[in-house]
Design a protein around this nucleic acid. Structure first.
Length: 447
RNA sequence: CGGAGCGUGGCGCAGUCUGGUAGCGCAUCUGCUUUGGGAGCAGAGGGCCGCAGGUUCGAAUCCUGCCGCUCCGACCA
């Protein structure tokens, strides 16, 4: 993409309403624009990050055996009366009426709808297990939206629903999502910690929140520092095999959010030097909730004994839009964002220091074509701006690699690669630079 | 939902107390000079001062109502 054609409205000054660094940087880097309290338009740069995160989430869901679909944002109140949640959900649910005065709502979650869809198509225990998911916008009329996309009212969420014939099966589904989540967040460069958690209004009795540590997180959390060093399950994980040992390894260490925290247990189980009391961002949440919805909504299957039983369900959410903010919280410095390659809006920022100079124009065009041709996403700064401004804005938007081509370097046949993560610079020939970028990007994207 | 505050060119703000022709910085446009870390000089454009009433000779400023937004707390992917 040529910057001259792109829409990238950068802000030099920090908007006063933004309190945390991720929100500030998302506004300054032209990623989002607030349209209403807790409601954001995703500008081109932010949208690219959102899409990359979404795709990683999708790939890991598919790998774990979940099947993608898409449910609507608008739902009928009828469904929610069946489960008994229409009244219970309270003012967080945005209620609307259509022209025939029918009561509708903008979905805050989809347990009811998926249960209705499931029961229409499944009759026998032989059809189980099933895991279905979608990635769709939700609306929760939060009392206090804040921190930009971290607590928006409208947000993009991946929600998966599992259906099993019995508790043992449900446990297996739960474990699959547990592992999938560890992998999902790790691929984005995040160290997530599964913590036993409150089940909240969704209900049930087995639940983990996946937390990313950050000073600006909204949850107070307590855990064993050794959790931070555990290996994440590999891409070769057999999701149909026994995942329980993997889960046990993670859950053997103390980790709890404030609501479930037991200080006596914490101090007994965790050595003093390993105790972590910190703040965290909840990026995922998994629940097993049994027949909470399937029983009232009559989602039943006929068992081997010929009797009908309500299916065992679980639901599993990832805050896709929230992750954009969470990743910035984890990867930034004074100058701006520092995107990990897998979620970066572009991999390489190509800076032509002196547009109009025949040599730099030619070298830049060559690099641009070669990298794009190799599947590397390039944002080519082909604008006539001054070098200082180009450097500053490339740092701000935080692409992992900067390829800097200027007349000074070209005199000796050299271009420069700057790595945004640590500021490391290499001077090398154009051809070598292109090869290096292709290689580095490819290796960073390897799953 | 309780408490606090803010709405003034695209962005950040001053002006409001004490009413009298709307200002600053950044950004934008033009010209010249610059050109490897957010340039300099000269000039220019751009505002129903959130909306609606009221008081007044006169309202960004005072009064009333409404709308929007932010922050702190209790709640949540």
């Amino acid at each position: 993409m040529r910057l001259s054609r792109y829409y990238l409205p950068l802000l030099k000054e920090t908007p006063s309403e933004a309190q945390i660094v991720s929100h500030q940087l998302m506004l300054r880097a032209g990623m989002v624009r607030q349209e209403s309290a807790g409601i954001y338009a995703w500008l081109p740069l932010g949208f690219r990050v959102l899409k990359k995160i979404e795709q990683i989430v999708r790939e890991e869901q598919d790998r774990a055996g979940a099947v993608e679909m898409l449910m609507p944002t608008i739902q009928s109140a009828e469904l929610w009366r069946e489960s008994g949640r229409y009244e219970a959900y309270g003012k967080e649910m945005l209620r609307i009426k259509d022209r025939a005065d029918r009561e509708m709502l903008f979905g805050p979650t989809n347990e009811e709808m998926i249960t209705e869809i499931f029961r229409a198509g499944v009759r026998s225990y032989k059809d189980l297990p099933k895991m279905l998911y979608h990635i769709q916008w939700k609306f929760r009329d939060e009392v206090r939206p804040r921190f930009g996309v971290m607590r928006g009212r409208e947000f993009l969420m991946k929600d998966t629903y599992s259906f099993d014939a019995d508790q043992e099966g449900a446990r297996k589904s739960y474990n699959k999502m547990f592992v999938a989540y560890l992998r999902t967040f790790a691929r984005m460069g995040l160290t997530s910690i599964p913590m036993r958690a409150d089940t909240g209004p969704i209900g049930g009795d087995l639940s983990h929140e996946f937390i990313v540590l950050a000073d600006t997180g909204e949850s107070a959390v307590f855990c064993d520092s050794r959790l931070l060093d555990l290996d994440v399950p590999g891409a070769d994980t057999d999701f149909d095999g026994d995942l329980q040992p993997m889960i046990d390894r993670y859950t053997s260490y103390y980790a709890a959010t404030e609501e479930k925290h037991d200080n006596a247990e914490f101090e007994t189980k965790v050595a003093k030097d390993d105790r972590v009391a910190a703040r965290g961002i909840e990026v995922g949440h998994i629940f097993y909730f049994g027949d909470k919805y399937s029983a009232p909504m009559k989602a039943v299957v006929t068992g081997a004994d010929g009797k009908d039983r309500a299916v065992e369900m679980g639901s599993y959410g990832v805050g896709v839009s929230r992750l954009v903010g969470a990743i910035i919280e984890a990867y930034h410095d004074e100058a701006g964002c520092k995107w990990p390659v897998p979620v970066a809006p572009f991999h390489v920022g190509l800076i032509n220091i002196k547009v109009g100079d025949a040599a730099t124009d030619e070298a830049s065009a060559k690099a641009y074509a070669a990298l794009e041709g190799a599947g590397v996403d390039v944002l080519y700064d082909d604008t006539p701006a001054r070098p200082g401004e180009k450097f500053a804005r490339m740092d701000l938007i935080g692409l992992p690699f900067q390829l800097i081509i200027g007349p000074r370097g070209l005199e000796s046949g050299k271009v420069e690669i700057k790595r945004r993560s640590d500021g490391h610079r290499d001077e090398l020939s154009l051809d070598a630079a292109i090869e290096m970028l292709k290689r580095d990007v490819a290796s960073a994207l390897k799953v």
